[in-house]
């Protein structure tokens, strides 16, 4: 099997100059999974393949040993893991044979920014109409919303740390926007 390398992350050209608090993460396996929640065989098979109980509460993240799953819609999840997606896709395909599912490697479809530090919240307030206040949004939560004018998934991964999943073609727009939003707080440019 051919290797997907050299892998150039979509925002690499601008990410070098990001201020402290903003980075573009190295690539990781991203697999979009759709299936019928009501069929227990589906949940069981996914658990077998990934070790994860898929989150059924909207906008929640379930984390397992090697993977995590982000709720995207009542029949859709984004699975994230380290390394290449092929293995995960195969495991899922095998476990779910015969079921009505859709499994897509989307590792290249989005890039992931990590926003961290004391001003992460402020940057999100500048960039999104969603309420990221700690009372409403906490580690283990994810949301699909707009960052500036681009669709994005935001996942809170720590008290002051967020992962922002952005469609590759929008990544420079969003990356530059976030970097500029941070600049006000005196982070070295």
């Amino acid at each position: 099997m051919a290797k997907n390398s050299p892998w150039i992350t979509p925002a690499a050209a601008i990410a070098r100059d990001f201020p402290a608090g903003l980075t573009e993460l190295s690539p990781r396996a991203q697999v979009n999974l759709r299936g019928i929640l009501d069929e227990s065989s589906f949940m069981t098979a996914v658990k077998t393949a990934t070790g994860i109980d898929l989150p059924i509460t909207p906008n929640k993240v379930a984390t397992g040993k090697d993977h995590k799953a982000l709720w995207l819609s009542p029949d859709e999840w984004l699975l994230i893991g380290e390394g290449e997606a092929d293995a995960l896709v195969h495991r899922l395909e095998n476990a779910l044979t015969g079921q009505h599912v859709a499994i897509n490697d989307v590792s290249a479809n989005r890039t992931i920014f990590e926003l961290s530090g004391p001003h992460g919240h402020h940057v999100l307030m500048k960039s999104s109409e969603f309420d990221f206040h700690p009372r409403v949004f906490a580690p283990g939560d994810c949301v699909q919303t707009l960052i500036a004018k681009s669709q994005a998934i935001v996942e809170q991964v720590g008290e002051d740390a967020f992962h922002i999943y952005v469609r590759s073609s929008f990544s420079r727009y969003v990356g530059a926007w976030l970097a500029e939003a941070l600049a006000e707080y005196g982070a070295p440019a």
Binding site: P58, S73, P74, F130, L146
Partner: peptide, 10 residues
């Protein structure tokens, strides 16, 4: 009905 209250722009 799934995600709760969100702004019109979404």
């Amino acid at each position: 009905p799934w995600c709760g209250k969100r702004h019109e722009t979404e």
